[in-house]
Nucleic acid binder design. Structure first.
Lengths: 231, 231
DNA sequence: TCAGCCCGTTAAATATTGTTAACCCTAATA
DNA sequence: TATTAGGGTTAACAATATTTAACGGGCTGA
């Protein structure tokens, strides 16, 4: 796990130095630029994880720089450092495309919170963006969306149907222990919950009829299997 | 909930008195010291929640005092009061482990903001960090402005809609527990509040129809998920 | 083989959630 | 002070989800 690289564009030399020192101290790798033009040059040379920039800067303002950067690398998160007395319409304009903003004067702690929040979010979305999908036969179970996409159209599933089918699909062609599934979904293996599960199995089987290759078979006294035969 | 104890070390008698009086008025329990040495003695005698200190002081300067304090109690947050443009002082202070700084002259409101921010942060360290802009699908939620910017225009949100959507957006693609959201927004999980939340969910879903990739899924008996599908 | 349990299915009963509209405040305005 | 507009809550009703009940068929072991 290497340090996150931050592009810091700030023309106030005091604040710039403070930012750089502070962010370094907190385990980041900041590159400080004094104006928008320098920021643009650094951006072209290297790859960054996050960009912090002032709005009002000589040579090239933050708004312009942000737009240019977004054109090249749309997913680079940008955190604007804005002055409090900035006109509303400017703020309005720069909202588009900014991932966040913080108004001066701000505390270092506030800034750090923002930076970590953005990085956490973007890093997460790089990993977990993939919504879970299970495929079996002509079906696709979109678990996160609670949708079963089959050969005869999409079926909206209820939460319980969704959970149950996911367990079966995850163990495709393998036995799913009855009691195990019950504990997973209902928390405990009781008579009524078991009957409930049977009701849902029945509903799911109805949908699965859309593809004759797919069926749920019962292993008496043991559990169930989602089996996928050949064409 | 007792008053937070503040150790205030400031050699300027005018500023010191003003600080003490103001902080008392705001419900804190400040102890005023005139120099670093006195500050050190008070620190040893009592337990404090936060320390505000000047840097340039007779007998023992702020840096020295801060270092000594940190050696004994590393987690005591320190807020430095620095003269304007003393960049090196600020950096040095942050390096020592100050949690924040504020440059003189400052307004009392400004100071209060810092103090409350630090105390809030240290008292409940597991606070959810709050961004100002949340993006999901073709939407941008501008939390501060209570505006949801979508593919078919901007929607002004009421504060409840705003809060609710923020919670969902912060946990994008993940389950948000019903009761948790209720406690966050309404303070308690009661029948009528729950019904109220359902009303707001309905309103939000109407707006989210502007982008078919985005939807709020119900997990029966559990909570909700803001789902962002693929194109 | 047959009693008894296990399971499949359907339907009814409950519980939870979705939606709309009426109602109640409060704060701004005339 | 009366009026109004907006936000929030409550009420009422609709739609779904889940559980329970009821009935019947099938499997299994004595």
């Amino acid at each position: 796990m290497s340090k996150a690289k931050l592009l810091v564009v700030e023309d106030d030399p005091n604040l710039g130095d403070i930012l750089k020192e502070y962010l370094e101290m907190k385990g980041y790798e900041p590159t400080l630029c004094r104006d928008g033009e320098e920021g643009w040059n650094k951006f072209k040379k290297d790859k960054y994880d996050l960009c912090l920039m002032d709005i009002m800067m000589p040579k090239k303002d933050g708004f312009t720089l942000a737009k240019e950067i977004k054109k090249v690398q749309d997913d680079l998160p940008i955190l604007f450092l804005t002055a409090k007395n900035q006109k509303d319409d400017i703020i309005e304009g720069l909202r588009i495309g900014a991932d966040d903003y913080i108004t001066k004067p701000f505390s270092m702690e506030e800034l750090l919170l923002r930076v970590t929040a953005i990085l956490r979010r973007t890093q997460k979305s790089q990993e977990v963006t993939q919504l879970k999908v299970y495929k079996f036969g002509d079906f696709e179970l979109h678990y996160d969306e609670q949708i079963l996409d089959g050969p005869k159209g999409k079926h909206k599933l209820t939460s319980k149907e969704n959970e149950l089918l996911r367990i079966l699909a995850a163990e495709m062609n393998k036995l799913v222990n009855r009691s195990h599934a019950l504990k997973q979904i209902w928390g405990d293996d009781s008579y009524f919950n078991a009957r409930s599960m049977d009701v849902y199995l029945s509903k799911i089987r109805k949908i699965l009829k859309d593809d004759p290759k797919v069926q749920i078979i019962t292993v008496h006294g043991e559990g169930f299997k989602l089996i996928v035969g050949d064409a």
